[in-house]
Write a protein that binds this DNA or RNA. Structure first.
Lengths: 164, 164
DNA sequence: TCTGGTGCTGATACACTGTAACATCGCATC
DNA sequence: GATGCGATGTTACAGTGTATCAGCACCAGA
């Protein structure tokens, strides 16, 4: 399917797509939301790929064999999934990744985007959050959401460089 | 021109556009770069507005009276300006703001985007940078650039709320 | 002076991203 | 069956961004 020589430390790929789907199913049952086929398929498409996918990529993947999924529908499904924290939008790429963790509400996420292999890792840092909160308070700014995306090279690609 | 009842603490508007232009002129002279009319006009358009402007907005503003500026040209000018740190791209809005400070290279910026008035403030926080560096080092990730954008309510709009 | 190169701009075309509006369908409820 | 609601399908369109080629100014070197 895809290259596994690069080891991800969160493993949001392949087998873990089933985890994401299971989690989604549970969450929708809890909140009394509809986890429809389209939403399931969109989530699956995003979860089986460690790289961020564009809406039109997803639409293309879901289309074929007599089914045609328009980008609009994908956007609606993505809206639903992001609102419920199952998928994250990567603003710097206009693309989407499935959520690798289950984190509480209001946790600040940090996305690590590798320039070389294109994969995305997702972490959190309470220390960064704390400092950021202090900075915002000092500026008299009341935050409601934040975006923190770092571009660079992931550990796996750095390793490849050193040991080619 | 625009509403000044909301006080910005960095004041990247109106009169300060001339500052931005002067700074740009100096910087281009230092680095032996061409500060052409188009680049000047684009920077001026962005600097006279505290809200982020889209490329097509800028193109529209520069067009008229026999001049037609295509969006492509604006994008090229914006590329030049962002590469030289005179303008910043707001990823979450697909829009651009002029740089309010002169900061050294490699300083992590924090953009504060007000949901209510749409204005953007720009600050820095060495503490956040430090913590983020530690987090990235722990993850084995070598950063080359970062995006940190916070959406919420600015001090001015919070004040208006309390004293309407 | 001519000539070639370089960098900026103009212009067209096109691909990608995202939203608005309306029709339809399935489903639950009355 | 009628009604209402949410999800999807469909079309259209606006906004964002890139590729490509052509013209133009300007400078360096023959």
């Amino acid at each position: 399917m895809h290259d596994h020589s690069a080891v991800h430390d969160h493993g949001a790929c392949c087998g873990n797509a089933t985890d994401a789907l299971a989690r989604a199913e549970r969450l929708c049952a809890e909140r009394d939301l509809q986890f429809t086929r389209l939403r399931r398929d969109v989530l699956e498409a995003v979860a089986t790929e460690s790289k961020p996918l564009g809406a039109y990529d997803i639409a293309e993947r879901l289309s074929g064999q007599g089914r045609r999924v328009a980008a609009v529908s994908v956007y609606r499904a993505l809206d639903f999934l992001t609102e419920n924290g199952l998928v994250h939008r990567i603003a710097s790429r206009n693309a989407f990744v499935s959520c690798g963790h289950q984190h509480g509400e209001g946790v600040g996420l940090v996305f690590l985007i590798c320039r070389t292999c294109g994969s995305i890792d997702e972490t959190t840092s309470p220390e960064v959050d704390d400092q950021l909160d202090k900075t915002l308070a000092k500026a008299g700014f009341k935050p409601s959401s934040r975006i923190l995306e770092v571009e660079g090279e992931c550990g796996a690609c750095l390793g490849h460089e050193r040991n080619p």
